[in-house]
Amino acid sequence: MSDPFSGFEKKRDYLICIDSDGCAIDSMDIKHFRCFGPCMVKEWGLEAYEKELLESWNEVNLYSMTRGINRFKGLVKALTEVQEKYQSVEGLETLVKWVEESDELSNPALEKAVEETGNICLKKALAWSQAVNASIKELPKEEVKPFEGVKEGIEMLHESCDIAIVSSANYEAVKEEWTRFGLIDHVDVVLAQNAGSKKSCIEKLLTYGYDKNKVMMTGDAPGDMDAADKNGVFFYPILVKKEKESWANIGEAKDRLQAGTFAGEYQDALKEKFVKNLTK
C-alpha cells in the first residue's frame, strides 16, 4: 500500500485539516440512508427488523455524539444490538475484537484479518463494506455535492494555509468527489480511511514542522473534535443542519488562528455550540 503522505511537504506556516463527508461534502445522509444501513440489512438478512435497525443506525451515525464514527465501529454497535434484541450473529466476538485491537480499520486491513482467521463475521463485514463502497459509487452524482460556500471557503483558506483532507471515508470516493467539484486543486494532501485514524493523521502532519497553535481541524463530528483535542490543535465545527452558516463564518476562524486569538473564549464557545447542536 502506497504511503498516503508521499509527496506532501509543508509550504505555509498554517495548516487547516478538513473532514469530507458531512463537513465539506453533503453526502453523509444519503450514504447512510441508502448504502450503509440497507447493505447491512441485506448482508445479514435482517429484513424483519429493518425499520428499527435503520432508525438506530441513523441515530448512531448521523444525529448524536457518535456521528461520524468509523464504519466498522458503527457496524459493531449495530450488530451488537441485533444480537441483544433480535437474533444471534455468528462470529461477532471476533469482529468486535478486531475493531477494538486493529491499528487500521479499513478494507485492506480487514482482508488481512479474514485471511488470517477465516471468521464468518469478518468475511461478512468485508462483503458489507465492499457492497457499501459499490453502492456509494452508484449514487446519482447530482445528489452528492459540496455544501454551499465550501468551494469559496477552501479557496480562501488555501491562499494562506496548507490544506489537508483528514477523513475516515473511503479514499477513492473522497478523491473522486473532491476532484469532480474542483476542490482538489486547493488541497495539499488527501488522508482518508487508508491513512489511519484522524488522530494519527494529524499527529503525523505535525511532524512536518507545524506549530500546534497554527493548526485547525474542521469537522462535523465528535471524532473530529477528539482528534484535534488529542493533538492539541484547534477545532472548528461545521454544525449539522447549519452547514452554510458554518462555512460562511470560517474566515473569522482563519483570521483568529493567524492572529493568535483562537484559544480560550472563542474556541470554548465553538465547542459548546457544537455539542449542544448534537445533543438537543
Rank of each mutant, 00 (worst) to 15 (best):
4 P>W: 12
6 S>T: 15
8 F>W: 15
10 K>Y: 12
12 R>Y: 09
14 Y>P: 03
14 Y>S: 10
16 I>W: 13
16 I>K: 03
16 I>Y: 08
17 C>S: 14
18 I>S: 15
21 D>C: 11
23 C>D: 04
25 I>G: 03
25 I>M: 15
25 I>K: 09
26 D>G: 11
26 D>N: 15
29 D>S: 12
30 I>A: 07
31 K>Y: 06
34 R>D: 05
39 C>G: 01
39 C>P: 03
40 M>V: 13
40 M>C: 14
43 E>F: 00
43 E>V: 09
44 W>N: 03
45 G>R: 08
48 A>V: 03
49 Y>Q: 11
57 W>D: 01
58 N>M: 12
58 N>F: 05
61 N>Y: 11
64 S>P: 02
64 S>V: 00
67 R>N: 08
68 G>D: 01
70 N>L: 14
71 R>E: 07
72 F>A: 04
73 K>T: 02
74 G>Q: 04
77 K>T: 03
80 T>C: 04
82 V>E: 10
87 Q>T: 15
90 E>R: 14
90 E>F: 07
95 L>H: 12
96 V>L: 08
96 V>W: 05
98 W>N: 07
103 D>K: 15
106 S>P: 01
109 A>Y: 08
110 L>N: 02
111 E>V: 00
112 K>V: 09
114 V>F: 02
115 E>K: 13
115 E>R: 13
115 E>F: 10
116 E>S: 06
123 K>S: 13
123 K>C: 07
124 K>P: 02
124 K>S: 13
126 L>K: 07
127 A>I: 05
134 A>N: 07
138 E>N: 13
140 P>H: 06
141 K>Q: 14
142 E>W: 04
142 E>C: 01
142 E>L: 02
143 E>C: 01
145 K>C: 08
145 K>T: 05
148 E>A: 01
149 G>Y: 00
151 K>N: 06
152 E>W: 00
160 S>A: 02
162 D>H: 01
163 I>E: 00
166 V>M: 00
167 S>H: 10
167 S>P: 06
168 S>G: 15
169 A>N: 14
169 A>G: 13
170 N>R: 02
170 N>C: 09
170 N>A: 03
171 Y>C: 03
172 E>T: 06
173 A>Y: 03
174 V>I: 13
175 K>H: 09
177 E>G: 05
181 F>S: 05
182 G>H: 05
184 I>Y: 01
185 D>W: 00
187 V>Q: 06
190 V>D: 11
191 L>P: 10
193 Q>W: 01
195 A>S: 15
196 G>F: 12
198 K>N: 05
199 K>F: 11
200 S>M: 11
200 S>K: 15
201 C>K: 06
201 C>Y: 08
203 E>R: 12
205 L>M: 13
206 L>G: 06
214 K>A: 12
216 M>Q: 03
217 M>P: 01
218 T>K: 09
218 T>D: 02
221 A>H: 05
221 A>D: 06
221 A>P: 06
222 P>N: 08
223 G>P: 05
226 D>F: 03
227 A>N: 04
232 G>M: 06
233 V>E: 09
234 F>Q: 07
238 I>M: 10
247 W>T: 06
248 A>Q: 14
250 I>D: 02
250 I>N: 07
252 E>I: 11
257 L>G: 03
258 Q>G: 03
258 Q>C: 04
260 G>L: 09
271 K>P: 04
271 K>F: 02
275 V>D: 01
276 K>I: 07
276 K>E: 15
279 T>S: 14
